[in-house]
């Protein structure tokens, strides 16, 4: 499972980087979105990969009043990834607005605001 996750993050990130380096704003924003997916997945797996383990402590999970940490997934990366998703989404949305504004003002969707001379 580790290999699958690692490869998928790598593919997402790699495609994202390639798109960000393209000259059109639409490609750039698509690239940013792909990178943000990759990064979110990356944060998520930093709490290690678990199967069938809840991130919350349940009443019947207590052993002598203490928590057996081995039974639970790490909740912190899950909380972090939630924040990261929200912030990444908001800033990317903001970029979308700027991108549309730029298209309207300069009449081109080139990142430099003018077509490169061919």
């Amino acid at each position: 499972m580790e290999a699958v996750i690692a490869i998928s993050i790598g593919v997402l990130f790699g495609s994202g980087v390639w798109l960000v380096l393209r000259p059109r704003t639409f490609q750039v924003i698509t690239g940013l979105l792909l990178i943000s997916y990759a990064v979110n997945l990356f944060i998520f797996i930093m709490g290690r990969l678990w199967l069938d383990r809840p991130p919350l402590t349940l009443e019947d999970g207590l052993v002598d009043g203490l928590v057996d940490a081995g039974l639970y997934a790490d909740p912190l990366p899950q909380a972090l990834v939630l924040t990261a998703i929200v912030i990444g989404f908001a800033t990317t949305a903001l970029y979308l607005v700027v991108m549309i504004g730029s298209r309207g003002l300069t009449g081109t969707d080139h990142v430099d605001g003018k077509e490169s001379s061919k």
Binding site: V20, V39, I87, T92, Y95
Partner: peptide, 21 residues
């Protein structure tokens, strides 16, 4: 401003992703 701002935003968005990594 919009041209400079657009580049500024993209660079900082990418930098923020690096921050998260």
């Amino acid at each position: 401003r919009i041209r400079a701002g657009m580049q500024y935003i993209v660079i900082n968005l990418v930098a923020s992703f690096f921050f998260l990594i």
